[in-house]
Design a protein around this nucleic acid. Structure first.
Lengths: 209, 209
DNA sequence: CCCATTGGATAGTGCCGGTATCTAATTGGT
DNA sequence: ACCAATTAGATACCGGCACTATCCAATGGG
């Protein structure tokens, strides 16, 4: 198939596809002449993955670059791909030597240790959680481990479900997509349902029907 | 206090504070002369709220504008403030007449109806969820109601906990902050813990220690 | 009294994710 | 064989966003 068909079937403009090729998100088509290249279904699948990560996961192009690089390297294990994804989606807050931030970060590390979770020291999600702690304290709503219990429970159940569901024994490309879908896309599913559940709870508590 | 002290205590530059005043996120100080205005603790609190919504919640300034406007209008009920917040944080995807999108959106509406949730027809979270459905289907990972069960359970438990915790009977300003914190900031708490739990689950399933 | 600070206004910056345009080569239809 | 349409590849450009820098005239504290 040529680029115009790829454009039609992916819903992206030819310009955008060229842009993704330039950025290394999508491999070039195989050149057939100086002005034609042939694209195949793998290109289409890749574009669908990129669209999903961009539009639904709201990932920046630079994060997708890193994920794609890990996908394309066969030596990268599934768990390494997972870690790469976590690192790519950030956040990249370099919170330096503020004592409040330090304390929050230590609280997070203590929590992870207490739960016995095997999580990289540099996992950005640790920073994200610490960041919320700092903000909550500054706003006068200090957070305690007790407050976190329902979140830990909910997060654990959902995460176990997700990782358990990742297709195994299928071609690597499929497993890889499955893993990305389970993490990036289902994070949005959880967020959306969380918001809907909140609105419902808010209506029951504060609404006036 | 004058603006330089406000800057020191909030951690924001004077320029940024002026910018927020211009954008209507922060009221002007009370003018004391042509070149001095007086700021008080409410300004500081407001700046902390803005920082939290920007840095932790990653909300755009335009969303914070809408939220602030609702906060400052005493006629807005808590539940209306909640709805305003939901609308402000988006997403603002105007997905038009694509049949796939329509079908996904109908699935979402059916789910909400089945659960008996009281959620506005135009709640953006409906669109967010529909968006994930479309992407998942395009990637060949169709989603079923069965898949959603753990998410619904987790979201419900957490949301009930959050809304139940909103301080009532306190001054409106405090209750309002409490509500925003419970929604915007704790969403990040859930996301962070979800990511950590996923990494742990991934390590147990795919790691090789 | 004088240099730093302030309010208020206007202009500029850096990043991001695309778009637009251009050229030269090729191709499909008639 | 001709010509309009398409393509690869390169370069330039654009609009939105969240600040950031500068400038000016009026203060005001040491």
């Amino acid at each position: 198939m040529q680029i115009s068909e790829l454009s039609d079937r992916s819903g992206l403009t030819v310009q955008t596809i060229k842009f993704y090729i330039r950025e290394g998100l999508l491999p070039k088509g195989s050149a057939v002449s100086a002005t034609r290249s042939e694209y195949d279904l793998r290109h289409l699948e890749r574009l669908r993955l990129i669209s999903a990560l961009r539009e639904v996961g709201d990932l920046p192009v630079s994060a997708i670059q890193q994920i794609i690089a890990a996908i394309e390297d066969d030596r990268v294990s599934l768990h390494d791909l997972f870690a790469t994804t976590q690192h790519a989606i950030g956040p990249h807050v370099a919170a330096p030597h503020d004592p409040h931030w330090r304390a929050a970060r230590e609280d997070v590390d203590a929590l992870v240790g207490e739960l016995g979770w095997d999580v990289g020291d540099r996992a950005p999600a640790r920073d994200l959680l610490a960041h919320t702690f700092v903000a909550l304290r500054r706003l006068g709503f200090p957070i305690t481990l007790r407050d976190l219990r329902p979140y830990v429970k909910a997060a654990t159940e959902v995460a176990d479900h997700e990782i358990g569901r990742v297709a195994a024994g299928t071609p690597r490309a499929r497993t890889v997509h499955s893993l990305l879908v389970s993490t990036v896309l289902y994070e949005q599913v959880l967020t959306a349902l969380h918001r809907l559940a909140q609105e419902n709870a808010s209506s029951r508590r504060f609404g006036k029907p």
